[in-house]
Nucleic acid binder design. Structure first.
Lengths: 179, 179
DNA sequence: CGATATTGTTCATCTAGTGAACTGTTCGAG
DNA sequence: CTCGAACAGTTCACTAGATGAACAATATCG
């Protein structure tokens, strides 16, 4: 029943340089030709789209976090700001459904963004139970700065998969975009 | 610095049917035409490959978990069994690098698999500090059963993105496969 | 009007990841 | 050959994040 495999490890990407090219000795039957290659067979996994998607996602999050570090903004938070920006007045319920998280899990996220002065929970005119989410002026400025960095990130991704690959990717994966 | 956005929510996929098509009233400016569509603008996000990759990954994990539920096997565990199966004698250090997790985080995972009798930590002949990981006979049988289910899962994925899309996907994303 | 459902919130609980510290082992410079 | 440094695996305390249950305020509909 349990599920898991979370993304917490995705820190600022500095760790890439961590383990030095220490010749990687004894990585199974040492094959002192490529030096740093542990000689591992991953063919079966790399033939599964799910595995590659996972790997891609790890890269994306890592690069995203590294790029957005000056703003200390994580992917979910960026998504939230963007969605609210494009859909002012949205309710928390609607937002949580889009994000695919339970509504109780959204609360601390919004608390954080509201605490930074980026969003506001306004009273909804039509339904006093719900809150109408809006960006503050500061939130709009902040989001604009974030957008610029996200574009940088996207460029790095394009460089990684190629311009054509990127286009195809958007086309192929669009079936997973909710709504 | 923090990072996050984990995958824990990915349960058995039963929840899709949870909130009934209750006409989804008042999802912002109600537009009683499509009935169940909350009328949210996500264009900006769905133009970002990272967002779509994330969404795809959510779908994949959800479907994977639903499919593998009879075996109660999660993606990481399947990866571990597969990698060990294809690379018997691998050390925990090497495995943790492939998986991209810290070596201390690998311990409970291996404990679990070893507790189920699927793998064994054998003493390494060459280096008595490290363990040589192997599948047990039972582990091999188990992995074979898992493989069959994973193929089902992959078929569902192919149905989702199309045979051509699937091929292209493997091709585009292979740059993210480690090594 | 009154039963029922819904929104946002709090809370206890769970999973999983991290880094530091410790043990036993190996390596390599002198 | 020896001794200090590096390394594999493990434990442990801590953290982030997700979940479901329960609750108050409000809304809906018979």
């Amino acid at each position: 029943m349990r599920v898991g495999v979370s993304d917490q490890k995705l820190r600022t990407a500095v760790k890439s340089a961590k383990q030095a090219p220490r010749s990687d000795r004894r990585a199974q039957r040492a094959d002192r030709t490529t030096d740093a290659a542990p000689m591992v067979n991953l063919k079966k996994l790399t033939g599964l789209a799910g595995y590659l998607i996972r790997q891609a996602q790890l890269w994306v999050f890592q690069d995203f976090n590294a790029t957005l570090e000056p703003l200390d903004l994580r992917p979910v938070q960026y998504s939230i700001l963007t969605i609210i920006g494009d859909n002012p007045g949205l309710s928390q319920m609607a937002l949580s459904q889009i994000l695919g998280i339970v509504r109780s899990g959204l609360v601390p996220l919004l608390d954080g963004l509201e605490g930074k002065g980026l969003i506001r929970r306004m009273p909804s005119a039509s339904d006093r139970r719900s809150h109408a989410l809006h960006l503050t002026a500061e939130g709009q400025h902040f989001l604009a700065r974030a957008d610029a960095l996200v574009q940088e990130h996207e460029k790095r991704l394009i460089k990684k998969v190629g311009a054509r690959g990127h286009k195809e990717l958007l086309d192929i994966l669009k079936v997973f975009g909710r709504r």
